[in-house]
Design a protein around this nucleic acid. Structure first.
Lengths: 172, 172
DNA sequence: GTATTTGCAAACAATTTGCAGCTCT
DNA sequence: AGAGCTGCAAATTGTTTGCAAATAC
């Protein structure tokens, strides 16, 4: 994840002006553990910073995304944003369907497989959805949804995935 | 892909009524080589079947999707539909960014890797985007976009992918 | 001081809904 | 006959745009 300062510096370096709104956005995304919709952002900003308009949120989400500061993902239920992962190494995510936190996967399917020559690969998407440890515990505790049965094999390639990264940090 | 009849039979078996519109939809999706937006469908239906309304298109896309006849994918540029692949075996796709045809990938990353025990996997997504043989040839022929440079290794797991399946059929 | 940003309101696009009339079965 | 469809028009939701006033540099 990027820190508040990294986000601000990047924006500043691109000649963007650092307004209070943008500062708040930077802080929000630096701290947010999961994905946020434009509305989430708006609601949050509303608390901290009353009088912020929806279009400013949209405009900035767009700008920050184009700048590479934010990652935009289209879920079935809408568009969401989160701070971009460390640019250094390419990786994929497990995404919790409950809390929407992301956990890095220390493995990329494209490393494992070559494409047929006839097809020129431009990009790929690999995402695993499910329930993370924390949410499974809460759900298992019995609040409506039934605690899921597991049918998992021993971890081979991804065992490190669960706690290596800052991703899954319980920050906030 | 499903045939017109398979689609119609499935819908009929679920107690849905077979109207002219639905018949046309079934035929359209049985023949379409790639993904279609609601608007694509509407435009097409307009030709064959003048006077069809947008809401009917939406209603039926939804119904057919819930029924499992259509597959709905959310692309960056919008929601698109295509006829569901043969239900029998799970597989992923290469998707051409130009023509949006899909080519099956004879490999699933989830077969290769176990997830950490702590995470309960519900579903996963693996998609490869790029340019297919046909489109690369056309583009290479020099109509604006530069013919892409390839940097592909020998195919290991996916070599069969390119011509096994009916998917990539040049049908229509 | 000047180019950027913001907030407002209004425009827009995509999708959904209510309802009366038409149509499969 | 009667539940299920369709088409229309109107409502909703999510996102974008034009413009004057406010602000960062």
């Amino acid at each position: 994840m990027l820190s508040t300062e990294q986000i601000i510096d990047t924006m500043s370096a691109q000649g963007l002006r650092i307004t209070d709104q943008r500062r708040t956005l930077a802080r929000l995304f630096a701290e947010a553990p999961g994905y946020l919709t434009a509305k989430d952002v708006y609601d949050y900003m509303g608390k901290k910073y009353s009088g912020l308009s929806f279009d400013t949120v949209y405009r900035n989400l767009r700008v920050m995304q184009e700048l590479g500061v934010l990652e935009q993902i289209v879920f079935e239920d809408g568009v969401k944003f989160k701070s971009h992962c460390s640019q250094d190494h390419h990786h994929h995510h497990m995404i919790c369907l409950q809390c929407e936190k992301t956990y890095p996967i220390a493995f990329c399917p494209m490393d494992m497989t070559d494409m047929p020559e006839q097809f020129e690969v431009v990009k790929h998407k690999f995402e695993v959805f499910g329930y993370c440890k924390d949410c499974r515990q809460e759900m298992g505790a019995g609040d409506g949804k039934e605690g899921p049965t597991l049918h998992l094999k021993q971890s081979k390639l991804m065992s490190q995935a669960y706690d290596t990264h800052e991703h899954a940090g319980k920050s906030q």
